[in-house]
Amino acid sequence: MDVFMKGLSKAKEGVVAAAEKTKQGVAEAAGKTKEGVLYVGSKTKEGVVHGVATVAEKTKEQVTNVGGAVVTGVTAVAQKTVEGAGSIAAATGFVKKDQLGKNEEGAPQEGILEDMPVDPDNEAYEMPSEEGYQDYEPEA
């Protein structure tokens, strides 16, 4: 019985440690998101679009440190934060509304985080759909 109880105690310690790591990862992701939003706020009209992409990228980098179902929630929060940063930029006159959601080359930025393969159960990952990809044929 002692062996059984000791095993359960060790398992509990492992769960607590994993929860603490997840909590730490979420806190880091939130900190990076805040950094990115402050970065966007300090940019001029020309830099705002690039700044919004930076927020998304920093958040995406930190999301990889967070495991399990938390990833889905962090990704949703990050996307809403990026959308909010863009709205703030438009409201303050840093950028025109028609410039939001495009990178410096004018290509749409939507789907940055949505296409990231995420499995809350950590069982399997699927690649994003290939609808947006084109076949590449090298020139002879």
Results as ranks from 00 to 15, higher is better:
Gly47Asn: 11
Tyr136Trp: 10
Lys80Asn: 03
Thr64Asp: 05
Thr72Glu: 15
Gly36Pro: 01
Val16Gln: 05
Ala56Trp: 13
Leu113Gly: 13
Thr33Gly: 03
Pro138Ile: 04
Pro120Trp: 06
Ala91Leu: 14
Met127Leu: 07
Val71Thr: 03
Pro108Met: 08
Ala17Trp: 13
Glu83Cys: 03
Asp115Leu: 05
Val16Ala: 06
Val3Ser: 03
Gly67Ile: 10
Leu100Phe: 02
Lys60Arg: 08
Val48Leu: 12
Ala27Tyr: 13
Glu139Gly: 08
Lys96Trp: 15
Lys58His: 11
Ala124Glu: 13
Glu130Tyr: 07
Pro108Lys: 08
Lys80Thr: 04
Leu38Thr: 04
Gly51Trp: 14
Ala56Met: 14
Thr81Pro: 02
Val66Gln: 01
Glu83Val: 07
Asp119Val: 05
Glu104Ser: 07
Leu113Asp: 13
Thr72Ser: 10
Glu110Asp: 12
Glu131Ser: 14
Leu100Tyr: 09
Lys97Asn: 11
Gly25Thr: 15
Gln24Phe: 15
Val70Met: 11
Glu28Trp: 03
Ala53His: 15
Met127Pro: 04
Val55Tyr: 13
Ala69His: 09
Ala69Gly: 05
Val26Cys: 14
Tyr39Lys: 06
Gln79Tyr: 10
Ala19Asp: 00
Pro120Cys: 06
Val48Cys: 05
Gly132Lys: 07
Lys102Asp: 13
Val48Arg: 01
Glu20Tyr: 12
Gly7Trp: 14
Gly86Leu: 14
Leu113Arg: 09
Gln79Ala: 07
Leu100Asn: 03
Lys96Phe: 13
Leu8Ser: 00
Gln99Cys: 10
Val66Phe: 14
Ala27Asn: 08
Pro128Lys: 04
Lys58Tyr: 13
Thr92Gln: 03
Thr72Ala: 13
Glu105Ile: 01
Glu105Pro: 03
Leu113Ser: 11
Glu57Arg: 04
Val95Arg: 09
Thr54Glu: 02
Val37His: 00
Val70Ala: 03
Gly41Glu: 01
Pro120Met: 08
Ala11Ser: 02
Lys97Pro: 11
Pro120Asp: 06
Pro120His: 12
Ala56Glu: 01
Ala17Val: 12
Gly73Trp: 11
Gly31Asn: 14
Val48Asn: 00
Pro108Asn: 13
Asp119Gln: 12
Ala89Thr: 09
Gln109Ala: 02
Asp2Trp: 02
Gly31Thr: 14
Lys43Gly: 01
Thr75His: 14
Thr33Phe: 15
Val52Cys: 13
Glu139Pro: 05
Ser9Pro: 00
Thr64Tyr: 13
Gly84Asn: 11
Glu46Arg: 04
Val95Ala: 10
Ala140Gly: 10
Thr44Pro: 01
Glu114Ser: 12
Asp135Arg: 06
Ala140Phe: 13
Lys45Trp: 15
Ser87His: 12
Ser9Cys: 09
Thr75Ser: 07
Glu57Ala: 07
Gln62Ser: 09
Pro120Val: 05
Lys43His: 05
Ala30Cys: 07
Gln99Pro: 03
Lys97Arg: 12
Glu61Trp: 14
Ile112Gly: 09
Val40Cys: 04
Gly84Arg: 12
Val15Gln: 00
Ser87Trp: 15
Val26Gly: 00
Lys80Ser: 07
Pro138Met: 06
Val48Met: 15
Val63Asp: 01
Leu113Cys: 03
Glu110Cys: 07
Gly67Leu: 12
Gln99Gly: 14
Met127Asn: 09
Glu46Phe: 06
Val71Ile: 15
Ala140Ser: 13
Lys102Ile: 10
Lys102Phe: 01
Glu126Tyr: 08
Ala107Leu: 09
Val3Asn: 03
Ala91Gly: 06
Ala90Gln: 14
Ala29Tyr: 12
Gly93Met: 03
Asp135Met: 08
Lys34Pro: 00
Asn122His: 10
Glu137Gly: 07
Gly36Ala: 09
Tyr133Pro: 09
Met1Lys: 00
Glu35Arg: 08
Phe94Glu: 03
Ala91Met: 12
Val63Gly: 02
Glu137Trp: 07
Val66Glu: 01
Val48Tyr: 12
Met5Asp: 00
Asp135Ile: 12
Glu139Arg: 08
Thr59Ile: 06
Lys10Ser: 05
Thr44His: 01
Tyr39Thr: 05
Leu8Arg: 00
Asn65Val: 09
Glu46Pro: 02
Lys32His: 08
Ala89Asn: 03
Ala19Pro: 00
Val52Ala: 11
Val77Thr: 03
Lys32Thr: 02
Val40Tyr: 15
Glu61Gly: 06
Leu8Pro: 00
Ala11Arg: 00
Glu61His: 04
Val66Leu: 12
Phe94Lys: 03
Lys21Asp: 00
Gly93Val: 09
Ala76Asn: 11
Lys102Val: 11
Tyr133Phe: 09
Gly36Thr: 15
Asn65Gln: 09
Thr33Ala: 06
Val26Met: 15
Val95Met: 02
Lys45Gly: 03
Leu113Lys: 09
Glu13Trp: 04
Val82Pro: 02
Glu57Leu: 06
Thr44Ala: 10
Asn103Gly: 06
Val70Tyr: 04
Val74Asn: 01
Gln134Thr: 03
Lys32Ala: 11
Ala53Asn: 11
Val77Cys: 13
Thr59Ser: 04
Val77Leu: 14
Ala78Thr: 10
Val49Met: 15
Met116Gly: 03
Ala69Asp: 03
Gln79Ser: 10
Gln62Asp: 01
Lys12Tyr: 14
Val3Cys: 03
Gln134Phe: 08
Glu123Ser: 11
Lys96Thr: 14
Val82Gln: 07
Glu83Ser: 09
Tyr39His: 05
Asp98Ala: 03
Gly51Asp: 01
Gly132Cys: 11
Gly47Arg: 13
Tyr136Phe: 09
Asp115Thr: 09
Gln134Gly: 11
Ala90Ser: 06
Pro138Val: 08
Gly36Lys: 15
Gln99Glu: 08
Phe94His: 04
Gly25Phe: 14
Val3Gln: 03
Phe94Cys: 15
Lys23His: 07
Ser42Leu: 14
Ala107Val: 10
Val55Met: 13
Gly84Asp: 03
Thr64Pro: 03
Glu130Gln: 11
Pro117Arg: 04
Leu38Lys: 06
Asp115Met: 08
Val77Ile: 12
Val77Lys: 02
Lys32Ser: 02
Gly93Pro: 05
Gly101Trp: 07
Lys12Ile: 03
Ser87Val: 13
Gly41Leu: 01
Tyr39Ile: 08
Ala124Trp: 12
Gly41Trp: 07
Thr33Arg: 01
Glu114Phe: 12
Gly101Arg: 07
Lys32Cys: 02
Val66Asp: 01
Tyr125Cys: 08
Thr33Ser: 08
Val55Ala: 05
Glu57Trp: 06
Gln24Asp: 06
Thr81Phe: 14
Thr81Gly: 04
Thr75Gln: 13
Glu105Val: 09
Asn122Glu: 12
Ala89His: 04
Glu83Arg: 07
Lys58Ala: 14
Lys45Leu: 14
Ser87Arg: 03
Tyr133Lys: 03
Ala78Cys: 07
Val3Arg: 15
Pro138Arg: 06
Thr81Arg: 02
Glu131Pro: 09
Ala78Gly: 06
Ser87Gln: 13
Asp121Trp: 05
Gly68Tyr: 11
Glu61Asn: 05
Tyr133His: 11
Thr64Gln: 09
Gly106Glu: 07
Ala124Pro: 08
Ser9Ile: 10
Thr72Phe: 13
Thr92Lys: 03
Lys80Gln: 06
Glu35Phe: 15
Glu123Met: 09
Gly47His: 14
Lys43Ala: 10
Gly31Gln: 14
Thr75Pro: 01
Ser9Lys: 13
Glu110Pro: 11
Ser9Glu: 14
Ala19Thr: 02
Glu28Leu: 07
Val52Trp: 15
Lys97Asp: 14
Ala78Met: 14
Lys21Arg: 14
